[in-house]
Amino acid sequence: MSIRAIETSYAGHRFRSRLEARWAVFFDKIGIRWEYEPQGYAVGPDGGRKPYLPDFWLPKEKLWVEVKGSEEQLDVELLFHAVIPHYGLPNPAGPQLINEHQVRLLILGPIGRADSLVHSTTGEHAGYSQPAHTVLTFRKGDVFQGMACFFAGGIDITPEGGLVGNDGPYIDWEGRGTRWGNWVGGGGLISEDRDEAAHAAYRAARSARFEHGQTP
């Protein structure tokens, strides 16, 4: 039996799911400007193009965002095709390039936990842990899975990661769950005190309540 998503209103938008609304709360709290479902596109090779409506566009980061409650809900082939520039999603503001990688698509799952760390010996504050998220990039005909972490007002992206296919198109799906998918809650990044805003944003998004109006 499938679980039906709950449509949720927030910031003047009607979100298809409460999870999407929570990520909008997160973006607002951390200071990232967002647009919700601005436009749909047909993606994929000629003869096999499919409609795709990305969940968010982040103008400053030049990054599309897909939100899914679980990895099993990901349409891997569709997202893979969306990442390939010559038949995927456009770059409305021009490509974001990091180490020759075009950073194309950020995949977000359930809102992860972000915790304060305590030194095991001294008991003193030792920084923070936060989730790492999947980002898909394109470089010289190949698609890679990298890592993205949030900080105050932006995203720290490491584009180098596992090779998941090429523009043949060939998709390596055998690594699903390790090299491909939602890394939310997996691993974890020890960040500095200056990144406390990210942890406050995770807490706000996790605890947001929408039942009594648009203000969480």
Rank of each mutant, 00 (worst) to 15 (best):
G185Q: 09
Y128L: 06
G161E: 13
A114P: 10
A198I: 00
N182G: 04
V43W: 07
W180L: 15
D156E: 02
H212G: 05
E192R: 11
I98E: 01
G12C: 00
S2M: 05
G40K: 01
G109A: 08
S129V: 06
Y128N: 05
S116C: 04
R104V: 01
P110A: 03
A21K: 04
R16Q: 11
R4H: 10
V76M: 15
K29N: 04
F80R: 08
D172F: 15
L97V: 10
R206A: 04
S207T: 15
P131F: 07
P51C: 11
R203H: 07
E77V: 15
D142L: 12
Y52E: 08
A148K: 08
I107P: 04
Y10H: 12
I3E: 13
E160C: 10
Y10I: 09
Q39R: 11
Q130W: 00
A5L: 15
A42M: 15
V103P: 11
A152Q: 06
N91I: 02
R113A: 03
V184W: 07
R209I: 02
Y87D: 12
E66N: 07
Q145E: 07
M147P: 00
E61H: 03
H86Q: 13
H133S: 06
E196N: 01
F138Y: 14
L58H: 00
F151N: 05
L78E: 05
K140F: 08
C149T: 13
E35Q: 12
A126S: 12
G146R: 12
E37W: 01
V43C: 03
M147V: 12
V25H: 11
F144E: 09
W180I: 15
L106S: 08
Q145A: 10
D28A: 04
E192L: 08
R206H: 02
R179L: 14
G175C: 02
Q73N: 15
A204F: 00
S116F: 09
F151D: 05
A82F: 04
Y36Q: 01
Y170E: 15
Y36R: 05
G187C: 14
R14K: 12
S207E: 15
L79W: 13
E72C: 08
G165D: 04
E196P: 00
R4D: 11
K140L: 10
K60G: 05
A5R: 14
L163R: 14
D46M: 07
G127K: 04
A114S: 13
F27P: 00
S116M: 07
W173N: 13
V65Q: 01
R49D: 10
L74G: 01
G44P: 02
I32W: 08
